[in-house]
């Protein structure tokens, strides 16, 4: 049935091509960045992750929560890999609400590595109220929650422009050419030199956007490096076993085929 196989192959090819086509609707195509974590052996750039955490902490964290991360994650393999002391110091720099104590009162204490990231607002409604009615989305899985992923987040961060003539913007709405609908309620918070990187990297808008996007990509997929590593091993194993089974199959079927 060579014909059957060939036709099926083309059909499958057509489906995949058409699904690619699906992804390209509606907004300006995000800028394609050559991320270090792309590809089957992709890894995060440690230094970029650490810088990205700094940008998050100093810029994003005042509005955006990251409620599914813990401070201990910052020291885990495959992530920014801060040292144990650094993680403890980072955690301790946050005030965590704990309790109730024996009197039934809630109290605050310095954070510990096992604590979840402290949210800037007590709940969604408070977050929206503090930000002109627009809830700043939780950033734990933001990269996975946006079509275009890391490229899209990066593009939005660097995509602020003056609105083209004829586009009217309400109070508290900004023009961004990569955002769906081109209107965004988050102001452009990045400007050159905004943060002072400990490793001396120049904090240009582009650099900060790349770093924080890398950090967010890790936050969304902290298992990425382990997944890639295990995946390569699994594929090698499967291919080896497939070859062995194929040879065994040939041997076994030769008993029949030789009789034919």
């Amino acid at each position: 049935m060579k014909k059957f196989r060939k036709k099926t192959f083309y059909l499958i090819l057509t489906i995949f091509l058409s699904f690619n086509h699906l992804n390209s609707a509606e907004m300006t195509e995000p800028i394609k960045v050559n991320w270090s974590f792309k590809g089957i052996t992709g890894k995060f750039d440690r230094a970029s992750l650490q810088r990205g955490f700094q940008v998050y902490k100093e810029v994003c964290a005042s509005c955006h929560s990251m409620q599914y991360l813990s401070y201990r994650n910052l020291g885990e393999p495959g992530g920014p890999e801060f040292s144990e002391e650094e993680v403890k110091a980072i955690a301790a720099s946050f005030e965590v609400t704990d309790g109730p104590d024996s009197q039934g009162e809630m109290f605050t204490r310095p954070g510990r590595p096992s604590d979840m990231f402290v949210s800037p607002h007590p709940n969604k409604e408070a977050a929206a109220a503090a930000n002109g009615g627009a809830y700043p989305p939780d950033m734990s899985v933001l990269v996975k929650a946006r079509k275009g992923g890391a490229n899209y987040i990066y593009s939005v961060l660097v995509g602020y422009e003056d609105p083209p003539p004829g586009v009217k913007l309400d109070q508290g709405v900004y023009y961004n050419k990569y955002m769906i609908g081109n209107k965004i309620k988050m102001p452009n918070n990045l400007e050159d030199g905004l943060v002072e990187y400990a490793d001396g990297t120049a904090s240009t808008v582009d650099q900060m956007a790349k770093d924080v996007t890398t950090f967010l990509a890790w936050a969304a997929e902290p298992e990425l490096e382990e997944r890639h590593k295990l995946g390569v091993k699994v594929l090698i194993y499967l291919i080896l076993l497939t070859i062995l089974v194929y040879l065994s199959m040939r041997k076994i079927w030769s008993r029949i085929d030789s009789k034919m």
């Binding site: 194993y237 080896l240 076993l241 062995l244 040879l247 065994s248």
Partner: peptide, 12 residues
Amino acid sequence: LFTATYTVGAVG
């Protein structure tokens, strides 16, 4: 060949 196949399969 069969032993190798079985062994590799069992390891997996």
